[in-house]
Design a protein around this nucleic acid. Structure first.
Lengths: 118, 118
DNA sequence: AATACATATGAACAATAATTCATATGATTA
DNA sequence: TAATCATATGAATTATTGTTCATATGTATT
């Protein structure tokens, strides 16, 4: 135990590979945003909400009813989905109706379904 | 304040919508798995590892070098990716080379890129 | 204006997870 | 077999996040 252990950490084993990959790797900002988007998809409550909205627009109350969860929990998650611009909403009197913001979402989900099923 | 506040929670506003959506909603197990998959994608370190592997197979040490993170952190995350069957590996002497387990991953990522860019 | 109802939100709590540190494992070479 | 190196892993720490509870907001109705 006379010396600290040096790991390979900062030393690449194949510098040419490291260089090539580093150059091709997308901007770290973009990759961060990608992770953020997937993070939003990475909760089963939100996944269930989005899948419910694949079928039709719904008010908060009905979503809660479908998922058998309380209104507050749904409202909080809708807020997250709203901030990620995955859902949009319209107000009609006391009721607020939510729907999907765009079609990419379904495409991404179907790819995920396929990945899981195979 | 004589009575507890009753929210709409268990009472649907549009029972027919709730019924129709409930019936069409995919199995909760599947949706849970979808969320689990996205959860794995929902971390920027893992996203960066996967994107690096889009370019070529790499050893742990080189991945750490590209991401400028220490070997232990990368190793832990590769474990997560391995468990999710998103990467595979082969051993060659002391070195372990990781690569993508299948092509769905790139497709899902490109959809996500598109969603973000628009 | 007061009440009722759908939805939103702040605070608190519990659970999960990412990174670091120290060390173990497994393979190579002297 | 002892030393070295790449990788793996357990424990500890810190940060993040989902849900609940209580309450606020906004709209409609009486």
């Amino acid at each position: 135990m006379e010396k600290e252990i040096e790991t390979c950490t900062e030393e690449a084993e194949h510098p040419e590979v490291v260089k090539a990959v580093s150059e091709k790797l997308p901007d770290i900002e973009l990759l961060y945003d990608v992770a953020e988007l997937f993070k939003v998809f990475g909760d089963s409550t939100r996944v269930r909400i989005l899948c419910a909205l694949f079928e039709s627009e719904m008010c908060v109350c009905d979503i809660a009813s479908v998922l058998e969860m309380n209104q507050s929990a749904i409202s909080h998650q809708l807020r997250v989905l709203k901030q990620a611009r995955l859902v949009k909403y319209r107000r009609e009197g006391k009721t607020v109706y939510y729907s999907l913001a765009d079609d990419h979402i379904q495409t991404i989900f179907y790819q995920a379904f396929e990945h899981i099923m195979e």
